[in-house]
Simulated assay, not measured.
Amino acid sequence: MTLFHFGNCFALAYFPYFITYKCSGLSEYNAFWRCVQAGATYLFVQLCKMLFLATFFPTWEGGAGVYDFVGEFMKATVDLADLLGLHLVMSRNAGKGEYKIMVAAMGWATAELVMSRCLPLWVGARGIEFDWKYIQMSFDSNISLAHYITMAAAVWMFTRYDLPKSFRLPVTVLVALCVYKAFLMELFVHVFLLGSWTVLLVKAVLTGAISLASLFLFVNLVHSS
């Protein structure tokens, strides 16, 4: 039974990445090492972010249950480094916008999956007692994949030199939502004291809405070019 639960968690977490890689056409372009390079860039950016946070944002020492709004907002702002990293990855890859976006997003999301969820899933999901949090973690990894594809698309649109004026405001709002989504979710959870499954559902709905908005802007921008 333990292996069965571990297999389910593994399939839920990793198969969507494999399917996305195959179905997006990246395998036809032999983009595996490009994705690996994007993952390496992710690791470098996260290291820089951790050093920056450790230097300029010490641990919150307020009372229990008190939410450090300003501090958490400033920490979320550091995620702007992810935008720079994604832009760097896409600028180093030649090809169509769709190809650049998927290479950057797949490398970024896969590196995040390996670094933040691989070990907990490997150790925890193989335990004697099954815990639903590992299923939640697997679903969350799929949400993260959609999030990074959306973020990469937003960065690609935002950095286009020929971006029409009518697109500048909605694309800027989209980029801001991608950066501060985690902060908004954390604030929402703190205010409404949501349960873990509800948090996952809200996160999925919010990510889906942002992804659809990004897709709408991307399609219209490509067709208007």
Rank of each mutant, 00 (worst) to 15 (best):
P164K: 07
L121I: 15
M106P: 05
L113Q: 10
N142D: 08
A94G: 13
D82S: 09
L163A: 02
L86Q: 05
A109R: 04
Y134C: 00
F158T: 01
F130T: 04
L83C: 07
R126P: 06
G107P: 06
Y148Q: 07
D68T: 03
V155K: 01
F139A: 12
G65Q: 14
P120T: 13
M137S: 15
I128A: 13
A105K: 00
Y148W: 15
L83G: 08
A109I: 05
D82C: 08
M137Q: 14
D79P: 06
S91D: 09
G85E: 05
V103G: 08
G107Y: 00
C118N: 08
V155D: 00
Y67N: 12
Y99E: 06
W108I: 07
T150Y: 06
F158G: 03
W108Q: 12
G97P: 02
G71W: 05
W108Y: 13
G71K: 03
E98M: 02
A152I: 02
F73M: 13
T159R: 04
A104N: 07
A111K: 01
S138Q: 00
H147W: 11
E129G: 01
G95N: 11
V70I: 15
A104H: 08
G65M: 14
W122C: 15
A111I: 06
I149G: 05
V123D: 12
R117C: 14
A64Y: 03
V78Y: 05
Y67T: 09
C118S: 15
Y99G: 02
T77A: 14
L163T: 03
F139H: 15
M137H: 11
M115K: 14
T110C: 11
R92K: 13
G63H: 10
M157D: 00
Q136M: 15
F69D: 10
S141K: 02
D162W: 03
K165L: 13
W132I: 09
I135D: 02
R126I: 06
R126K: 15
V89F: 02
K100T: 00
D82Q: 13
A81W: 09
G124A: 09
K165V: 06
L88S: 10
L84E: 11
G71T: 08
D82W: 04
A81F: 12
K100Y: 04
I101C: 01
L86A: 05
A125N: 04
A76I: 11
L113R: 06
F130I: 04
W108H: 10
T159M: 07
V114N: 03
Y134Q: 03
K133Q: 15
K165A: 12
A81H: 04
A94F: 09
I143L: 15
S91A: 11
M151S: 11
L163R: 00
F158E: 00
I101F: 08
N142H: 10
G107C: 04
K96F: 11
E129Y: 04
E112T: 04
M106E: 09
A153Q: 01
A105F: 06
F69A: 08
T110N: 09
D162T: 06
A125W: 02
S116Q: 12
F130H: 08
F69I: 10
S138M: 04
L84H: 06
V66N: 07
A76M: 08
M137W: 12
I101A: 00
G85V: 04
V70R: 14
A153P: 00
G124I: 07
H147N: 11
K75I: 07
